[in-house]
Amino acid sequence: LKGVVVAGGVLAGAVAVASFFLRNKRR
């Protein structure tokens, strides 16, 4: 169960970083 929580956190972080980079590329 702990691994699932960690994986979810990593996935959420990756999505946040990806969206951040996409926003920067638009400018």
Rank of each mutant, 00 (worst) to 15 (best):
K25M: 11
R26S: 12
N24S: 13
V17H: 01
K2H: 06
G8A: 07
A7Y: 14
G9F: 04
K25E: 05
A16V: 04
G8Q: 06
G3T: 15
S19I: 14
A7V: 14
V4W: 11
N24D: 04
A7P: 04
V5W: 03
G13H: 11
F21M: 02
A16R: 09
F20R: 05
K2Q: 07
F21H: 03
R27G: 12
V6K: 14
A14C: 15
L1V: 04
K25S: 13
G13A: 09
R27H: 13
V15F: 05
G13N: 04
G3S: 06
A16Q: 07
R26Y: 10
R26A: 11
V10R: 06
A16H: 07
A7M: 10
A14S: 06
F21L: 10
V10N: 03
N24T: 09
V15P: 00
V17D: 00
R26T: 11
V15E: 00
A16T: 06
F21G: 01
S19K: 13
S19R: 09
V10C: 14
K2C: 09
A16C: 07
R23V: 06
A18I: 15
V6A: 11
R27A: 14
A14W: 09
A18D: 00
V5G: 07
V6C: 10
G13V: 08
F21I: 09
V17Y: 08
S19M: 15
V17M: 08
S19F: 03
A18C: 09
R27M: 15
A16W: 13
G3N: 14
L22N: 02
V5Q: 05
V5E: 03
A16K: 06
R27I: 11
G8V: 06
G13M: 10
V15S: 02
G13F: 13
L1D: 02
V17I: 10
A7E: 03
N24I: 12
K25C: 12
V5A: 12
V15Y: 13
K2A: 07
R27S: 15
V6S: 04
R23M: 02
L1Q: 01
G13W: 11
R23E: 02
R26D: 08
V5C: 15
V6G: 03
V15A: 12
R26L: 08
R26N: 10
V4Y: 15
A16Y: 11
L1T: 05
G3W: 14
K2G: 07
G13D: 03
V17C: 08
V5Y: 00
V4E: 02
V4H: 06
G8Y: 15
A7D: 03
G8S: 14
V10I: 13
K25F: 12
R27V: 12
R27D: 06
G8H: 10
R23H: 07
V15I: 13
L22K: 06
L22A: 05
N24F: 09
A14E: 00
A7F: 13
V5H: 04
V6W: 08
V10G: 03
V5D: 01
G3H: 13
F20A: 08
F21C: 05
G9I: 07
L1A: 08
A7R: 11
F20W: 09
K25P: 08
K2Y: 06
V5K: 10
R26F: 15
L1W: 12
A7K: 15
R23Q: 05
R23C: 09
L1P: 10
A7S: 10
V6I: 11
V10K: 08
R23N: 06
A7L: 11
F20I: 10
G3V: 12
V4P: 02
G13K: 13
V4L: 12
A16S: 07
K2L: 07
A16M: 05
R27Q: 11
A14I: 11
F20P: 00
V6L: 11
V4K: 14
A14G: 04
A12Q: 05
S19P: 00
V17E: 00
V15H: 05
V6P: 01
K25D: 08
L11T: 02
V4S: 10
G9L: 07
A14L: 08
S19G: 07
R26P: 11
G13P: 01
V5L: 04
G9E: 06
L22Y: 12
A7W: 06
K2M: 08
L11C: 06
G9K: 07
V5I: 07
A12F: 13
G9V: 09
L1C: 13
A16I: 04
A12L: 04
G8F: 09
V17Q: 01
G9M: 14
V10E: 00
G8K: 01
A7N: 06
V15K: 04
S19D: 07
N24R: 12
V10L: 15
G9H: 02
V17R: 04
G3R: 13
G8M: 02
V4C: 09
L11N: 00
L22E: 01
A12E: 03
L1E: 02
V4F: 15
A14Y: 08
S19T: 07
G3K: 11
A16P: 00
R27P: 10
R23A: 10
F20G: 03
F20Q: 04
V15M: 09
V6Y: 15
V4M: 01
G9P: 05
F21D: 00
L11R: 01
R23G: 05
F20L: 11
A14F: 09
A18G: 03
L1K: 14
G9T: 10
K2N: 07
L11E: 00
A18P: 00
A18E: 00
V17P: 00
S19H: 12
R26G: 14
G3P: 12
L22R: 05
R26M: 14
K2W: 10
K25G: 12
A12D: 01
K2S: 10
L11W: 06
N24C: 12
A14Q: 04
V17S: 01
F21Q: 02
F21A: 05
L22F: 08
A7C: 10
